[in-house]
Amino acid sequence: MVKYIHQVGLVIMNKNDIKLIVVIFVIVTLSIIFINIFKKTGSFAKVYYEDDLILKIDLSKDGNYKVNGYNGEVLIEVKDNKIRVDRENSPRHLCSKQGFIDSTTQTIVCLPNKIIIKIEGKDQELDGVVK
């Protein structure tokens, strides 16, 4: 089978062409395999302290994270592609009360700690949301 293709190939082009094509084929196949190993489906969450991005979290993996807010440590939990603030130092704990968010239209805002958690996904088409 391969030999047949080889012979047909030699009619159309020369040996070097065939070598070129084989090389390209191998490189492309390897890179496709490589990309798919490292591909992570699912969106990211971005954690900001004031204006600075301090942490980017992959929502496809469950986990717990600690960041430093203005009033102390803020504990963040990721579970089932959702994220929430588990615990924080603030008078009314409004931050942890906001619960889990999982879509790009939602944001967790911790004013006393100056922490914002936003979700970034494929539907970035909205410039803003009025609530």
């Binding site: 082009m13 020369n14 062409d17 070129l20």
Partner: peptide, 14 residues
């Protein structure tokens, strides 16, 4: 002059 015209065309596309 390594490749034939077909090979050159492939490289052109690449």
């Amino acid at each position: 002059k390594i490749f034939s015209i077909v090979g050159i065309s492939v490289c052109g596309a690449l």
